[in-house]
Design a protein around this nucleic acid. Structure first.
Lengths: 150, 150
DNA sequence: CGTTTTTTGTTGCAAATACAACAAAAATTT
DNA sequence: AAATTTTTGTTGTATTTGCAACAAAAAACG
């Protein structure tokens, strides 16, 4: 059987490692850049959805965002009509940072796809979307405490 | 530009999360399954190479393997001709566990590729290998303290 | 309308992760 | 052969990560 998961894991760890090193000087510690980018691109989003986008635990997102609020990267606003949801907004500080974060991500993407034709880029893009969708199903299932049978 | 890194990150986190939950009952804490599998498949490998395969920091691998030795999953043997290298071997305990770990990985792979034709599987496999190779270059570069320009 | 379930969020732990800084052996260069 | 660089490995310290366990609001259900 053709194995793709190990490559995906290694690629993801390598890229995360690179970004963490590069963003250290921006006062963003491990993983925080992920949240800043998502909140900049989805102002008003709630924590639960951020965790779902990133596929991290709800508690991890909770604490990461707490830190970002303290550091002044994120604003947490309460909904007038809903006492439970807390909407997240980027501050001026993150908005100013966003272009740099985006450029780094784009650069990594270009580097990752170095030597790929337009057709190949299209192809891997679509295939990965399908993998993501497939895996989301199992993630939701296992995260809810269900057992997979293998 | 077509963005593939976010999907790769999300897929990797989701899969890692699933495996960690499923392997908890085997007394393997977060991430340890990765090391056990690699050492079972590459008996005699040294730590530095494990870190390189997985794309984790050398210090992370060092401590993870320390724990695995204490727990009886890994044997560390010294080389008679080389005082620096420490060769890693699976114990009976890990070898007994290996088939289960492998089966889980294979199952996740199947789930990830659900609905894919043989051609599509081949395609994503080759394209990911190329991405991995591309990213390895930058990983080595940045990990050695060099600056990327973006 | 009242009860049950789901959603959203937080803390208490326990543990992994990784940058700095260091050390020593091995390999390379001069 | 001696000096330098690279490889391999470890600890100190700071931080993230996430399962349990909990809470409260909101939504679904009878």
């Amino acid at each position: 059987m053709k194995e793709i998961l190990r490559d995906i894991g290694a690629i993801a760890r390598a890229l995360d490692s690179i970004s963490n090193i590069e963003f250290k000087e921006l006062d963003l510690t491990k993983g925080q850049y992920l949240y800043v980018i998502r909140i900049c691109e989805n102002p008003g989003i709630i924590q639960e959805k951020v965790a779902e986008l990133l596929k991290v635990d709800r508690t991890t997102a909770s604490r990461a965002i707490q830190k970002l609020v303290i550091k002044g990267f994120v604003d947490k606003r309460f909904d007038a009509h809903n006492k439970k949801n807390k909407h997240l907004f980027p501050t001026e500080k993150s908005l100013a940072l966003y272009p740099l974060l985006k450029r780094e991500g784009d650069y990594s993407n270009e580097r990752a796809l170095d030597g790929f034709s337009d057709e190949e880029i299209d192809c891997i893009h679509h295939l990965l979307e399908r993998v993501r969708h497939n895996i989301e199903i199992d993630w939701d299932y296992v995260k809810k405490g269900q057992q997979r049978h293998y």
